[in-house]
Design a protein around this nucleic acid. Structure first.
Length: 568
DNA sequence: GCCGTTTTCGGCCCGACTGTTTTCAGTCG
């Protein structure tokens, strides 16, 4: 059973117990444990086998027992028990925005409602409005929420959310709102974003809220008070705006950036020091001792400023206390792009066009890396084609100043782990990336062996998009990431962090594991057009979330890499 | 249920908005 499956069971358990009115602190204990499990790159099964499960924060005796149960029997006894006692539809009901455990319990007790369908019917018929705490307005609101949830349950990609937020901030600026910033999971550069949080400083909050709710792309105003407003944009995305006084801006930015887990830790630390931390500042009694900037807030807690990308309660607070925060790689450190497609396979631009566009972005080298023959539908090259492309790359290189062109390929790893072109051809190339593009449904053992075989080949410099996931569309293939990273470390093979916002593969946590194991990460755009070369920012952001420093990133080196086997 | 610079027992983050309840509970972030 996968980590996220067990985490999901613990979360369900928490939700059900919440419905039953169980001690709220017990629930947060389950939820915290679930989050810690999701954060692990190592399989829970491994941790159990090596008796290291209880080393994880938030996992004690009782939860350990439940995890072991899940692994050995596929079930958690307590969950099974509670599932029997709670009507199955209440979890669905609690997913409606505005319906929490208390409301769900009331509706169940007073009206005997057990399913989302019954809930919807009761809301329409007016029955729901008779339940204590629910009036006509709330019932109507629930109906709207149900309809809306059906239309837009999907999370946005970082690559969609960031440009949208930047557009909204620019529009606010045109209307006289200065210094607005996106906070939330977007500022932490999470791979997917639920909704967008924007923060503005100012005293004329009514004016700012008014400007915001009247922006051209706003479809519906969900709510607007004195300091905050929520709207739904034409695209279906929810955007929240908060307006705070300048003396609280840093504290608010800190608070609304999160993560929740990070903030809870900070607030507990503040309490320990006799302080109170809220979105309005750090207070000693009634006196505000910090709040104008984030630096101030962290300093009041005797911490250096922690970069937003690290704020997940994954050890960044402890590192900050020890003065051991990583010096994160930055977009400006990136010198090359080692995975770029052209018209020679399925790219839209020529070698020269890609090179010029990369040079304009400040890249010093790129590796032309087209597909190989197994991907015939994508124009994959055979040996003959590849040799011709090498000649074309060299010819283009002669014409261009200021950027080096490397010969390369995105070599297909076939289902049996053999490579799509012979070693003699690969040996002629400057940089070989090898990727899986077929037989995604192989079991974990087979898939892992397949990739390990490619890693062992001295001509393979890097493994491309390791899990093959497409966010929101396709699960990654089953592969033992830990085993692959360890083999990469042994063989001196690099691993790709594919910067395409649909992939971001390696994940942040896998990047961090690569760093621990001493594996070099290559951040590539996998560009199929000149515009795609700009996707690098998303890859760098994910690398930052993975604690990577410049020295961990192969294409942050000033000179092009010559492959693990040395100059070819 | 977890955990220990406040603790092996007694804590566990804080505030805004909404609707409805005439003084606040529930939900959300």
């Amino acid at each position: 059973m996968r980590n996220d499956e067990i985490a999901g069971m613990l979360e369900t358990l928490a939700n059900l117990l919440e419905f039953k009115g169980e001690n709220p602190f017990k629930l947060s204990a389950y939820r915290r444990a679930a989050r810690v499990l999701r954060d692990q790159t190592e399989d829970v099964a491994t941790l159990v086998r090596e008796n290291r499960l209880k080393d994880l924060p938030g996992i004690g005796e009782s939860i350990e027992k439940k995890i072991v149960q899940a692994l050995t029997t596929g079930k958690i006894e307590k969950l099974t028990e509670v599932l029997k006692a709670v009507p199955p539809g209440v979890l669905r009901m609690m997913e409606i925005p505005g319906v929490g455990p208390r409301t769900a319990a009331q509706v169940h007790e007073k009206l005997g409602i057990n399913t989302l369908q019954e809930f919807t019917r009761a809301a329409r018929s007016g029955k729901l409005a008779g339940v204590p705490g629910i009036g006509a307005k709330k019932a109507e609101g629930f109906l709207g929420a149900i309809k809306f949830a059906k239309a837009s349950s999907r999370r946005m990609l970082l690559g969609e959310a960031l440009p949208l937020a930047e557009r909204i901030v620019a529009q606010l600026e045109e209307r006289g709102v200065r210094g607005a910033l996106a906070a939330g999971s977007l500022r932490r550069m999470c791979e997917t974003i639920g909704d967008i949080d924007i923060l503005a400083a100012g005293s004329a909050s009514g004016k700012i809220i008014g400007a915001f709710t009247k922006l051209p792309e706003v479809r519906r105003v969900l709510g607007a008070g004195g300091t905050k407003a929520s709207v739904v944009m034409e695209s279906g995305v929810q955007v929240d705006l908060r307006v705070v006084p300048p003396e609280s801006f840093g504290a608010a930015l800190q608070y609304f950036t999160g993560s929740k887990a990070h903030n809870i830790r900070l607030r507990a630390m503040a309490r320990g020091r006799g302080l109170k931390l809220s979105e309005y500042g750090v207070f000693r009694g009634n006196r505000r001792v910090a709040g104008r900037t984030e630096e101030e807030v962290y300093r009041a807690l005797k911490l250096p400023l922690i970069p937003p990308e690290l704020r997940e309660d994954r050890g960044e607070i402890e590192a900050a206390q020890k003065g051991a925060l990583p010096k994160l790689v930055a977009l400006g450190d990136i010198r090359g792009d080692l995975h770029v497609h052209t018209k020679w396979s399925d790219g839209r631009n020529t070698i020269e066009e890609m090179a010029r566009a990369a040079r304009a972005l400040g890249r010093k080298y790129i590796a032309i890396s087209d597909h190989t023959r197994a991907l015939k539908i994508f124009g994959g090259l055979d040996v003959d084609g590849l040799m011709k492309e090498i000649a074309a790359v060299r010819a283009a290189a002669k014409k261009l100043r200021g950027i080096a062109l490397l010969t390369g390929t995105e070599m297909d790893i076939r289902a049996d782990g053999t490579l799509d072109l012979p070693d003699a051809a690969l040996a002629k190339l400057d940089f070989v990336t090898a990727s899986v593009h077929s037989a995604f449904r192989q079991d974990k053992e087979k898939m892992t062996q397949r990739i390990l075989k490619a890693i062992a080949n001295p001509n393979v410099d890097c493994i491309g998009h390791l899990t093959g996931r497409l966010l929101g569309r396709r699960e990654g293939y089953a592969v033992d990431v830990e085993a692959v990273l360890k083999a990469a470390a042994r063989n001196g093979t690099a691993v790709e962090l594919n910067a395409n916002p649909l992939r971001l593969d390696l994940t942040d946590q896998a990047c961090r594991r690569a760093k621990e194991l001493g594996v070099q990460v290559v951040i590539n755009t996998d560009a199929h057009s000149t515009e795609d070369l700009q996707l690098m920012r998303y890859g760098v952001a994910t690398a930052q979330r993975g604690w990577l420093e410049k020295s961990n990133v192969l294409n942050a080196r000033a000179t092009p890499p010559k492959g693990k086997s040395g100059g070819k």
